[in-house]
Amino acid sequence: MIKIPTLAALAAESKEAEILFWVGCAGSYDARAQKVSRALAQILTEVGMEFAILGNEEVCTGDPARRAGNELLFQMSALQNIQTLDAYGVKKIVTACPHCFNTLKNEYPALGGTYEVIHHTQLLQELISSGRLVLKGGGAFKGKKITYHDSCYIGRINGVYEAPREVLEALDADLVEMKRCKTKGLCCGAGGAQMWKEDEPGDKRINVERSDEALETGASIVAVNCPFCMTMMTDGIKARDKQDDVMVFDLAELIIQHNAQ
């Protein structure tokens, strides 16, 4: 168990946080994504960052509703969140979800909420390069083949390709790229509210197509930066019965594993 203050608790003591950790619905409720939330919280705690969460005051950013076409619901969620964020005077936000990241960063300003928003892979890269996060040299991944899956909302949509790769390089991993990567990276199939529905009729599931590409690299670890990609890639690898050979991890988890050795 990790003790993470909420902004409400800090405010009661007239304190502020350096950064708000926006957990998101997946990070809060999805069992697999919860582990990523804990990994990130552990890293932030270890580097001594004063961070806080909103706890029950956080509601869905509205991304899936907006992309499904439900603008009304998006506006309701967004305006509620902006009220909360502004009430606490939040300036800087970190999140492990690329969809939350994109909506907070690119869409809330038009509704009156402007914050400095960074994705956790960017924060981790910053912490490593500034020396604040020390990678103890266990060499857990030395020479291990890791492939990195660009999420659409961090990669193509927000142009962040290098920070996550720099983190993997700092782990001494042998980074192998998939055929389609960076600007040409293939979607895992979950974006645009697809996460909440079945694929339309076709001849293959998108996540299986992407997982096949990851498997082709021969990597034993697929590194992801998004809770939805995490689910889709895990399911795709399972569909090929490779779940015992190939594992899917978020970058934050890889750092914890590296330092635990």
């Binding site: 619905c25 409720y29 919280a41 029950n56 869905c60 899936p64 619901l73 509210a193």
Partner: peptide, 30 residues
């Protein structure tokens, strides 16, 4: 629209979460 989206819409509207789960939102910390 796709019927499968309705539970997601309802959950966001009523519980502020994309999934209808009754746990407190900071359950993951414990």
């Amino acid at each position: 629209g796709p019927a499968e989206w309705l539970p997601m819409f309802n959950s966001i509207e009523n519980a502020g979460s994309a999934w209808a789960i009754s746990d407190p939102r900071d359950q993951w910390t414990t």
